[in-house]
Write a protein that binds this DNA or RNA. Structure first.
Lengths: 114, 114
DNA sequence: CCGACGTTTCGACTATCGTCGAAATGTACG
DNA sequence: CGTACATTTCGACGATAGTCGAAACGTCGG
C-alpha cells in the first residue's frame, strides 16, 4: 500500500511535460525501455536536461536504469505506476462514496509488475 | 479525452502534500464538499495558505466553489479525477503492451460525474 | 445601514525547479 | 593502453512554488 509522501513524489515526477513525455515514451517502448541517447533524439532535448529528468523519474521509482552491453537502458516501472493508480482510486471515493462509486476500489490494475 | 497539458496540470495540482490532503478531505466529505473554514481547522493550516491551494485545485478543475447560504462550499470534481485516471491508464500500457496488461484500458472508473 | 464573520488578495520572503553548455566520468572496442 | 562515444555532473541563471500575516472584500443577521 502506497503512502502519501510516495504518492506525492510519484505525482510530482509525472507532473511535468518533459518527464511525462519521457515516461510515456518508455512505457510505449515496452519493458525493454530506451537509452538516454535514443530518448534525447526522440524528444529533441539536450542530454543534460534529459538526464536531469531521468534522475527525477528514477528517484520516484517510476523508471530504473539497467546496463545493456555498451548502452544504458531506462525501463519503466509498471509496478510503481500500478501502485499509484491504486492509491488514487482508493482515495477518490473513500468515505461517503456508497452512492456514486461504479466499481469497487482496486479493480484497477495497469500492468503486472513483471 | 484528456490531453497532455491538462493531465500535467491535474497531476501538478495533486503533487503537493497540502493540496493532496485538501482534495482527499473533500472527496472524503462527499459530494457536498466542505467550506474553507472547516478545512482550515481540519487540516490546521492558515486560511490564506489554504485559499492559495484551493485556487490551485480549482484552476486544475479538480474542485469547484459553490455558494451555500452564507457559506462557501468547495466540492470535489470527481469527473475530472476520473478523466485523469483514464489518461493515466490509457498511457501506461499503450504500445507494446499485448503481454503484460491484465485488464483492458478504460476499465477504470472512479466515480460517476454526478 | 452596520457590525461581525468567513474568505480572498496582497506583499514579502525563501526554497526549489527547469534549462542548458561545458567539463568530467565511465565503458567498450581496437 | 588509448581513443571514441555515451552518459552524468557541475555551475549558472531565470522562473515559479509555497508559506504566512496583514489588510481588503463580500455577505449576511440584527
Amino acid at each position: 500500500m502506497m503512502d502519501e509522501s510516495t504518492a506525492v513524489a510519484s505525482l510530482a515526477a509525472l507532473a511535468q511535460p518533459m518527464r511525462l513525455r519521457v515516461f510515456r515514451a518508455l512505457v510505449g517502448a515496452g519493458p525493454a525501455g530506451l537509452t538516454p541517447g535514443v530518448l534525447s533524439a526522440l524528444l529533441d532535448v539536450p542530454p543534460s536536461t534529459l538526464s536531469f529528468h531521468l534522475k527525477g523519474l528514477a528517484r520516484a521509482g517510476l523508471v530504473a536504469p539497467v546496463r545493456e552491453g555498451r548502452h544504458l537502458h531506462y525501463r519503466p516501472a509498471l509496478g510503481q505506476m500500478d501502485a499509484l493508480l491504486g492509491y488514487l482510486t482508493d482515495h477518490c471515493c473513500e468515505a461517503g462514496a456508497a452512492d456514486g462509486c461504479a466499481i469497487q476500489p482496486r479493480e484497477v490494475a495497469c500492468c503486472d509488475t513483471h
